[in-house]
């Protein structure tokens, strides 16, 4: 499963992270090939967000190494786009949709230089892509949850990155937005970008993503969805935390017990997401 060729977009080696005394990630190895659309899945407190934050250099690792196309993140920053959790910012901040999207260009602008007409144009284009152009001049507090998420996506789009990290982009969005986001993600993948998405809804993993990483403090499994997203692995991730201790023994493959480990999906997904979704 593992090889050491240089084609990986993201390589994580022996990564251990601890908050104060509490380990959050134990010795995680993860190789993400370029051009995949990967979900990171695991229970609450599994370290999903932390994993992304370590890769982005926002959280310090106790041990281990992260590289982006074989080099350190700080050298490859321009290749990376980031969509934080929607709830992490104050949406009552006095600023407009367009202004937030232009923040995606700040990194390329560097210090002091202000965004100009070029940044404005690319921001408007990105807003067009997420269907928000009409709201470009609206104050961000007047947006619905789904619209807020689209703004964040547009901001990532103007970063014009090769690799995107997204932290729960489907959290609390309406069904229309969810479909729009999925379409956008798949379009980006078709352009050859690599996408790593923290995801909560197990029921949609198979339909939305082509790769998946199962994480629960340590990496349980990682790879193409059809190989890795198995009941056994899910149980290792969510259910019997004891189970993996005897990993040499074969797991009896029972079919019943998954539902109780699946985090109750969001209402929108239950109501509309599954039935209306067209398969990719």
């Amino acid at each position: 499963m593992k090889n050491y060729s240089d084609t990986f977009a993201i390589e994580v080696e022996d990564l251990t992270v601890a908050y104060r005394d509490q380990p959050v990630l134990w010795d995680v190895d993860l190789n993400v090939p370029a051009g995949v659309l990967m979900a990171i899945v695991g229970p609450n407190g599994a370290g999903k967000t932390t994993l992304i934050k370590v890769i982005l250099g926002l959280v310090r690792a106790a041990a281990g190494r992260v590289s982006i196309y074989g080099q350190s993140y700080s050298d490859q920053r321009r290749l990376v786009g980031y969509v934080p959790q929607r709830g992490s910012v104050d949406w009552d901040f006095p600023t407009s949709v367009l202004d937030v999207v232009m923040m995606g260009r700040y990194g390329a602008l560097g210090w002091i230089r202000r965004p100009g007409s070029r940044e404005r144009r690319s921001a408007l284009e990105a807003l067009d892509k997420v269907g928000m152009r009409d709201l470009a001049h609206r104050q961000i507090s007047q947006l619905s949850g789904g619209q807020q998420q689209r703004v964040f996506l547009a901001r990532a789009l103007v970063q014009d990155a090769q690799i995107y990290f997204m932290d729960e982009p489907f959290q609390g969005v309406d069904a229309t937005t969810e479909r729009a986001i999925v379409a956008l993600l798949q379009e980006l993948r078709a352009e050859g970008k690599t996408l790593v998405v923290v995801h909560h809804d197990l029921q949609t993993v198979v339909d939305y993503f082509d790769s998946v990483t199962l994480l629960n403090v340590r990496r349980i499994a990682s790879g193409p969805v059809n190989e890795v997203f198995t009941e056994t692995n899910l149980r290792l991730t969510y259910g019997g935390r004891i189970a993996f201790l005897n990993r040499t023994e074969d797991q009896p493959a029972e079919t019943q017990n998954i539902p109780h480990v699946i985090k109750p999906a969001k209402v929108e997904n239950d109501a509309t997401g599954i039935g209306e979704r067209s398969n990719p």
Binding site: K53, L56, G57, L58, S74, R77, V80, Y82, P84, S88, V89, D90, F93, T95, V100, M103, Y106, G107, L109, W111, I112, R113, R114, P115, R155
Partner: peptide, 22 residues
């Protein structure tokens, strides 16, 4: 005024700002 853009980033979305390298 000189660091207008950077301060705005700090106040609105500091984690994103850090990911950009500021």
């Amino acid at each position: 005024l000189f660091f207008w853009k950077e301060f705005k980033l700090l106040c609105f979305d500091s984690a994103f700002g850090a990911s950009l390298g500021f």
